[in-house]
Design a protein around this nucleic acid. Structure first.
Lengths: 188, 188
DNA sequence: TGCGTAAGCGGAACAACGTTCCGTATAGTG
DNA sequence: CACTATACGGAACGTTGTTCCGCTTACGCA
């Protein structure tokens, strides 16, 4: 087998630029949505586009990197909700939280749902991070007899993402169509 | 008031090119999806892009024009389903049909859901044509007590569109998430 | 401390897109 | 048959994402 892990030396300025890029991207995404041009992000970071593309193979990976921490937090919340609420209620609360996360990020849902291969990294990220979280919630609620069994977590996750493009109503009420979907889980 | 309708003379070759463009667009959309480049459509029709853009202000209008007849047919089917089936069943059948229509058109749902202003004409078309059709189905089913009242037809239409990007399963089973949504309509 | 080298950088350049523009061609009329 | 409004083709423009490469610079070693 080849050298397992040759001591990679990462230059300090490279590490620095990577951080700067992430911060800039977060700023720009908030201001102009995830569809903001790569050049705008590079400019905001004060680097050239070449630098951006050395750190991220494409825009989607950058988007994914920016939202990773927030996604991790959302995933983590599944466990704590499950510990403090009845399974069905925990499921609802978590879905609502996820809905708000998606709706909050201007253009995130559009990117998720575009089917554009350029954004493949995003579904992959949600799948790997949020899939298991939702699976645990579904399993608990299903075991408690609160929802029908046999619902595919990834399919549901994708569906909720699909439905979450509208901004959440200010009073905290979740999207009515998501509500409908959740009610459907309880039928039969 | 100004001249109400000065006898416009439409040149024969213009009318001809318009038809050719529609046929070409239908062909190309089927082959390469609705995201196919405008140039590809113009080439298929054997005309220049300028001609395309004189007949349609933008790509979205062309897409809308291509699907108009099919959309009209779908809308019309609401009435006939309502005449031959119980309201709830008619609703399910129609939604399934709509689902298949969207899933069949490669990239149509992506366009619908993209939020891209370039595709504004599409939601407008569905809204005006299919909205009333779905409204009649919902009203009938609701009056029969088969579903909950107060569901916004346009919201539901959009939601089903959002969920219909996967190809329909060959056995004719509708998308499970759409199924869930429909079950949700029956809850309470 | 200074130097050589690879890691890293900037931004010009490329390809693909939607859309606009305008010189040229022609359908239809008198 | 000639004239003109109508329509046409396709080059050109502005914006994308992404690639490429000559130059810069960090940093391990002497």
């Amino acid at each position: 087998m080849p050298t397992p892990d040759p001591p990679r030396k990462v230059r300090a300025d490279a590490r620095q630029n990577l951080d700067t890029l992430l911060v800039a991207a977060r700023t720009v995404f908030a201001r102009s949505g995830v569809d903001a041009p790569a050049r705008e992000i590079a400019t905001e970071a004060g680097v050239g586009v070449g630098t951006l593309y050395r750190h991220f193979p494409n825009r989607a990976e950058l988007v994914a990197a920016v939202f990773t921490t927030e996604i991790d937090a959302t995933a983590a919340e599944a466990a704590s909700l499950l510990a403090t609420h009845p399974p069905g209620e925990a499921l609802d609360l978590w879905i609502t939280r996820f809905t708000r996360f998606v709706a909050t990020k201007q253009g995130l849902s559009a990117a998720l749902r575009s089917g554009d291969p350029a954004y493949d990294a995003l579904p992959a990220l949600l799948t790997s991070k949020l899939g298991p979280a939702l699976a645990s919630l579904l399993e608990a609620a299903s075991a408690a007899g609160e929802i029908r069994p046999g619902v595919d977590p990834l399919e549901l996750l994708q569906a909720v993402g699909d439905l979450s493009h509208r901004a959440p109503s200010p009073d905290g009420t979740p999207n009515p169509m998501v509500r409908l979907l959740l009610d459907g889980l309880r039928a039969q």
